[in-house]
Computed example of a mutant assay.
Amino acid sequence: MFPLFLRLAVAAQLVGALLSPPPAVAQSIETAARQAIIVDFASGAVLMEKNADELMVPSSMSKLMTVYMVFDKLKTGAWKPNDRLPVSETVWRKHVKSGGSLMFLPVNSTATVEDLLKGVVIQSGNDACSVLAEAYSGSEEAFGEEATRRSRELGLTRSIFKNASGWPEPDHMMTARDLSVLSRRLIADFPEYYPLFSQTDFVFNGIKQGNRNPLLYSTPGADGLKTGHTAAAGYGLAASLKRGNRRIIMVLNGLSSMKERAEEARRLAEWAFREWETYPLFKAGDIVVPDAEVWLGEAETVQLAARGNLEVTMTRKARAEMKVTTVHTGPIPAPIKAGDEIGKVVVTAPGMAPMEMALVATGDVQKLGFVARISTALSRIIWGQPKR
């Protein structure tokens, strides 16, 4: 029986001028924030980061986890927007003289889930968070445990929740990166509810309060998400901005004042949109390799297609240096089934880790019969190429 003499082939070709990987090492820009991260929403590329994996007091930004869990209740139908939830004396006593932000829910009253969500998102009401937590888990402590467990399922690797509001409590901690992941999931998983974050004011119990997100009033494209402030944490903001087809997520914390938070957030947002761009390279099913050679198959070649969508983010200056190569082991031995992973696309740039996407066969290729296989193998040995 003759050996098959498979060789390793690396097929490299320039795919076009619009080539870009997400940077493995974010470009440097100084910020006064103690912790910071900016992420491209579509590609997940990190545009800048500073102490992004450092545990920090998230203050009211951790309310985003409470909102996520309530949105999920609504989406599954377990809760309805008009369901009324009770305001217990426990909740009222906890918050009435706390000095924190409130929705001003009267004791022993009820409020709809929809109004409570507005109280959390727009008014940053700690009392609204506690009402939702008690209805969800029976107690705020139990809710914190459930939120921590659920956060791991969402990809938050270090966050620990002790309550629903972000009220200062030992070990209630998050990271800027976790907050960026949570922000992306909120927008991606609940597009039907996300517009709530752009509402600028809400009246409840005769009291009108404005949304505390400063970007909503001053920065084009801003449409969410949540501010935070405590003495220990300083001033923070988890923000999302969309211009054209691009959306960025930005998390800042540890700023010294509301003014600095607003100015720093605007400055960094303008930098992200000015210096960076996201380019689509392939859509799922696009033919990337039209004629990958097949070994001992009824067809001599097979097409390789992109398994999924590939969008890459880079600085505009780096765009001309980007390269895309295709890599696969060939000739590809038959049999081949449509959907088999055959190789990959690799996007590279100086100073950046490669970005990869799988290539899959677009059709079936059956193996040649025994006699044909012997003939083809002999031709390969004698002539260096198959003879049919």
Rank of each mutant, 00 (worst) to 15 (best):
D127P: 02
P21R: 10
A320I: 14
F202D: 02
E356D: 06
S159Q: 07
I248W: 03
Y68M: 07
A26I: 01
L132W: 10
A349Q: 08
G221E: 09
V87E: 12
R150P: 08
G228R: 00
F104L: 09
E270T: 02
P220H: 09
P220S: 09
P290R: 12
A176S: 07
G363C: 06
K80A: 06
A45Y: 04
R246M: 14
W79M: 05
A33L: 05
D83M: 14
M250D: 00
S88D: 13
M61E: 09
N253K: 05
E146Q: 15
F143W: 02
L281E: 11
S159C: 11
L186V: 10
G236E: 02
V39L: 13
E192V: 08
H328K: 02
K208G: 01
N211Y: 04
E277T: 10
S43H: 06
T326C: 07
F204S: 03
D340T: 05
R307I: 07
S257G: 09
A358T: 14
S218D: 02
M1N: 12
S59Y: 12
L281T: 09
K50P: 00
E140Q: 13
S218A: 06
N108W: 10
F282A: 11
P335M: 11
K75F: 08
S130L: 05
R243Q: 12
G343P: 02
A338P: 05
T157F: 04
V345R: 08
F204C: 01
T362W: 14
T76P: 00
N126T: 07
E89V: 07
A306N: 06
W295P: 03
